[in-house]
Each structure stands twice: as structure tokens, then as C-alpha cells.
């Protein structure tokens, strides 16, 4: 093998290694957004959390979330107090977690800017109650950042969140959860 061939082979090898490192591995963020929204004819309730920890494995599609319940901020302090103390008991159950899979991970090309879709399935845990959840997610790859958006609904009753009859008309039994996270490759 002459010098030119060796040099060419080395360039190809290092190029492939760089490509593999960039598209594989763990993508994560500690500043993901989760918003939830409850709509009833009586009242709309919304809250936001901007410190969501989430990561996915680009090889296997394994996906994880951890969110602090107390860190949801409501427009009104009283709503936030009732949410934490009466409904979520967030001192006793401080976190909600999701562990699941990006079902079509191979269809999301992390090395190429573009928009990709995949279903997500997994287990959502709140107040020590775990339920299966599935939804569609949109992944937008741009300049090395992977933005993922997904929405799904949960019924408070499924997670043993007791709503007193006096305020039942104000809280929907279909709470919409909106997830929006910018993942970057974790070195």
C-alpha cells in the first residue's frame, strides 16, 4: 500500500469515526420545557416547568425524563399552592418520571438537518402510580441541536389525584401535557 492509499484510508476512517460519534451516543438537556393545560368552561389552568431533565440514547432510542413537581410555575400563587399541597402532594412525591422508547429511532437521522416523526411509548410515573403512555413526537434536527415536541393527555384520576367535588368543575379530566426540549450531544 503506498503513502497516498494509507492517507486516504486514514481520512475515510477518521471521517466515519467523527460521523459515528456525532450521530450516536447520548443526547440530553437539563432545561427542557413541560407545560400542562386544563380547559373547562369555568376556568383554564396552565403551568410551566423549564428545568426538565431528559435524555435519549441515539443507538437504542431509550428515552428518559425527570421533572420536579414543585417547579411548575402557575400564573397564580394560590393555584400553585393547591396543586402542590392538595392534589400532587409534591413534598411526598417530588418527581414525575418517564421511561420509554423512541420507537423509530433509526428513522431520525441525527446527522442530517430535517424534520422526523416517531411514536414514543413508555411508562409515566406520578405519585407512585405508573401508567403506559404513547404519543407521536416530532424531531427537528438543526445544526447539531435536536428539538423534540410531543403532546399527550392524562386523566388525574388515573394517577390517584383526588379532585374535591367543590372544584371538580374547574379541572379537566383530560389534562394536556406539552413537551418541548432541545437536546444536544453529550460528550
Amino acid at each position: 500500500m503506498n503513502k497516498t492509499s494509507i492517507l486516504f484510508a486514514a481520512i475515510i476512517t477518521f471521517g466515519l469515526m467523527a460521523f459515528t460519534n456525532h450521530s450516536g451516543g447520548i443526547y440530553k438537556t437539563n432545561t427542557g420545557n413541560i407545560n400542562f393545560f386544563s380547559h373547562t368552561p369555568v376556568e383554564d389552568i396552565t403551568a410551566d416547568n423549564h428545568k426538565v431533565k431528559t435524555a435519549f440514547d441515539a443507538e437504542t432510542g431509550k428515552l428518559q425524563f425527570s421533572v420536579l413537581i414543585k417547579d411548575f410555575e402557575f400564573p397564580k400563587a394560590l393555584m400553585q399552592e393547591h396543586f402542590n399541597e392538595n392534589y400532587m402532594e409534591s413534598t411526598k412525591y417530588p418527581k414525575s418520571t418517564f421511561t420509554g422508547t423512541i420507537d423509530k429511532m433509526s428513522a431520525v437521522n441525527l446527522a442530517k438537518d430535517g424534520t422526523y416523526k416517531s411514536s414514543i411509548t413508555g411508562k409515566l410515573t406520578m405519585k407512585d402510580v405508573t401508567k403506559e403512555v404513547s404519543t407521536m413526537a416530532t424531531f427537528v434536527v438543526k445544526g447539531g441541536i435536536v428539538n423534540a415536541k410531543a403532546s399527550f393527555t392524562v386523566n388525574p384520576v388515573d394517577y390517584h389525584i383526588a379532585i374535591p367535588k367543590t372544584v371538580a368543575a374547574k379541572i379537566s379530566n383530560e389534562i394536556k401535557i406539552n413537551v418541548d426540549a432541545d437536546y444536544t450531544h453529550s460528550h
Binding site: 447520548i26 440530553k28 437539563n30 428545568k51 431533565k53 431528559t54 435524555a55 435519549f56 440514547d57 431509550k62 428515552l63 428518559q64 425527570s66 421533572v67 420536579l68 413537581i69 414543585k70 417547579d71 410555575e73 409534591s90 417530588p94 418527581k95 418520571t97 421511561t99 453529550s186
Partner: peptide, 21 residues
Amino acid sequence: CMGCNGSEELDLLGSKDVVLS
């Protein structure tokens, strides 16, 4: 103080964070 996010069981998330808002 809002609590501590992350846990050993969630291996992909890495470090744990005590959170102040």
C-alpha cells in the same frame, strides 16, 4: 428550593441537581 431532580435509576440523565428557582 424545589427539590432534587434526577435519580440513580435514570441512568441516561447523569448528574442529580438540587434546584432553586
